[in-house]
Amino acid sequence: MRIDPFALRKPAALLGLALVAIHLVLALFSPWIAPFDPTELVGGRVDPPGGEFLLGTDALGRDYLSRLLHGGRMALFVTFTGVVAAVTAGSLAGIAAAWFGGTLDDVLMRLCDVKLALPGILFVSLFITGFGESFGVLVTLIGLVYFPGVIRIVRAQALTQVNLGYVKAAQLRGESAFSIIAREILPNTLDVVYVEFAIRMSHAVLLLSTMSYLGLGLSPPTPDWGLMVSEGVGQLAFAPWLVLFPAVFISTLVIGLNFGAEALAGALGLDASRGHVGGT
């Protein structure tokens, strides 16, 4: 990987990487940082911030700070697993589609069309209604949501290589399809794959929060930012911090991931704002 270190020194890039790093640290060490058990009912109903409970308590008297910290852990874990699955499977399928072409390509592309034509939230709600809200289902869902976009991007990237000399040369040497995909094409799509991963991560964090907010994501009592916003929105007028704090956590992570993705793309010489940002 050729990294241009100067692309990483822009203020936005530094801010993004710092935000992501802070969130990662908080998420990884939340069990040790968090002052209370996130599900234990330790305080009064909706205690305001300050005092024993730094960021107050929620409607059931649980420490809000602890829930926020554990919420990040959950959000990052679910989205990371789901996006890794989507990017891995999508990359292999995308390269295979580009290399084999023909019916495999047609079928995969039409499936992507179908998925991309289906409104994201509709797909999510159908899926959740059918399969529930457990961890495995959410990971699978995030995988499925981002899979088609990754296929398209990676396929496009792989297609530019199919006619390049080194691929033709490998073909003429009589290399197997697997060898060509793994040795020749895959290494040259990795830049795109990394950037895809970073961008999809930020999408996925937002999607997971949206889903939880709509009651389609993680289930109570799991601490989850989207869920916390949705639980707090009824009390918005009286206890605005119940919405404000999780919203700040969500947006800093998403902004961090976005800036980080852009910085990574810049460092790798790709254009994150043009070809590589897929919708949900």
């Binding site: 390049l164 000399g165 080194y166 033709k168 040369a169 003429l172 040497r173 009589g174 040795r183 020749e184 290494p187 040259n188 990795l190």
Partner: peptide
């Protein structure tokens, strides 16, 4: 394989005919 060995091709664009990752 023997025939494949006996016929070789060199392409126009030198950069794209070498895998940049190898």
């Amino acid at each position: 394989p023997a025939t494949r060995r006996r016929i070789q091709i060199i392409f126009q664009d030198p950069l794209s005919s070498l895998n940049p990752r190898h």
